[in-house]
């Protein structure tokens, strides 16, 4: 190989890359929170809600789980304006990620809810707890404890998947990498650096979520 890798040429662009990194982190954190909220609501609706609502949730989940994220993103960003709903790049990226994680977490949380023994719900109701109290303190509490590892890895998958939002020019880490590559033509160097940044981010997220899990679920 006659080519010499030149990482020093990336130095002048450190602020672009840092901004991208922050954007990716913020996008992941915000859409994770919103996505899990959507997932919890849909999972509860599917197990305890009326039949028609459960059907709608099932269609939503299967539609999202069986199409690529990039197509969902393009549909939201390019397709919806045709119906009169115009979104900025970051809003579209955020919305697509919430919808995507919402569907996956619905399935994960539903599995957790179904693993809760029926006797626990009956016991809660017989102690004069309201339906909401049973859901909050008995069902979801136990469900989340069980599915926390699966949910954690889904969060990391979504974080890595967010690289795709660069394609609608939302200014995430991959967008920053493309920008730098288009300026100094050091494609391989910048993509290698950014790939390692993602790897580091994934490893950090994993250990952070593990620590968080230990704090949240330490009782017992």
């Amino acid at each position: 190989m006659s080519y010499k890798l030149q990482f020093t040429e990336l130095l002048p662009y450190w602020n672009v890359l840092l901004y991208g990194l922050l954007f990716t982190i913020v996008l992941t954190v915000v859409s994770t929170a919103a996505g899990i909220a959507v997932g919890t609501a849909s999972a509860a609706a599917r197990t305890f809600g009326p039949l028609w609502l459960g059907r709608i949730v099932a269609v939503y989940v299967e539609l999202i789980r069986n199409t690529p994220f990039i197509v969902q993103l393009f549909f939201i960003f390019f397709g919806l304006p045709a119906l009169g709903l115009k979104l900025s790049e970051s809003t579209a990226a955020f919305l697509a990620m919430v919808i995507n994680l919402g569907a996956y977490s619905t399935e994960i949380i539903r599995a957790g809810i179904e693993a809760v023994p029926k006797g626990h719900i009956e016991a809660g109701l017989s102690l004069a707890m309201s339906k909401w109290e049973v859901l909050r303190h008995i069902v979801l509490n136990q469900a989340f404890r069980k599915i926390y590892p699966a949910l954690s890895s889904q969060i990391i998958i979504v974080m890595l998947g967010s690289a795709v939002v660069s394609q609608i020019s939302a200014e995430d880490l991959t967008y920053a990498a493309n920008f730098v590559a288009s300026r100094n033509f050091r494609n391989f160097e910048v993509y290698l650096l950014v790939a390692l940044a993602y790897l580091l981010l994934a490893l950090l997220t994993r250990s952070l979520l593990r620590a968080l899990g230990r704090v949240i679920f330490k009782a017992r």
Binding site: G161, A163, A177, Y191, A195, L196, L199
Partner: peptide
């Protein structure tokens, strides 16, 4: 631990 998109770029340019 890295996005598939990054891997594609790395192979394409690497």
């Amino acid at each position: 631990g890295t996005p598939l998109l990054m891997q594609l770029f790395l192979f394409f340019f690497g």
